[in-house]
Amino acid sequence: MKEKIDRLRKMVNVLQVVEKHPDLYFITLEGNQLVMALGYLKNTLNFKHLAFMQAVDYLEDNKFMLTYMVYNYELKANLGVNVFIDREESSMFSIHRLWEHAWQYQRELYEMFGIDFPGSPRVDEPFIMESWEEMPPMRRDFDTLAYSQKTYFPRPGRETNDPKEQMKKAKYPNYPDSPKIRRDDE
């Protein structure tokens, strides 16, 4: 794996390498070199399987961390590629030409985090949340409590009746009240 990362270093600027396990490494790259690096990883270094791509919200740093997890069938090892992008104008190059299923993840990230991938097919099509009008819900500043209070409370409930009175009125209108039993302590 180290040899593969060294070969990658000749192509792009690798900012950080973390060895989590012998078969799981994480590297950090610059955002504008990502597509080139992933293309090189896939086509030359044989990291052919894209397991997933996801985002992590670092609200306090005003950044998103994107993680692309690729897998090499021969090495039997995973490599996580991290890039940091700006949170305000969150946009990233699309990799739908590298993997046929990448558009699915990009559509999900667009909906859940508001990260745009210009050119990605069906990226603005709703994935899970049709007619969602709030901010993207997986962003950390999305206030779930305020949203649920605004959307679900106070919800007018059903008309309720006192069960005892209701039974008397609806079922037994002619039935006399039972005599009150006087107890010794009263």
């Binding site: 989590k20 799981l24 994480f26 397991a51 997933f52 996801q54 992590v56 961390m65 993680t67 997890m69 995973n78 996580g80």
Partner: peptide, 20 residues
């Protein structure tokens, strides 16, 4: 602090969790 990816073979294949 850290990040990891753990996967296991389910009946449908690679089922994994990425945790940060």
């Amino acid at each position: 602090a850290g990040q990891t990816y753990i996967k296991a073979e389910s009946t449908r294949g690679e089922h994994g969790f990425y945790m940060v």
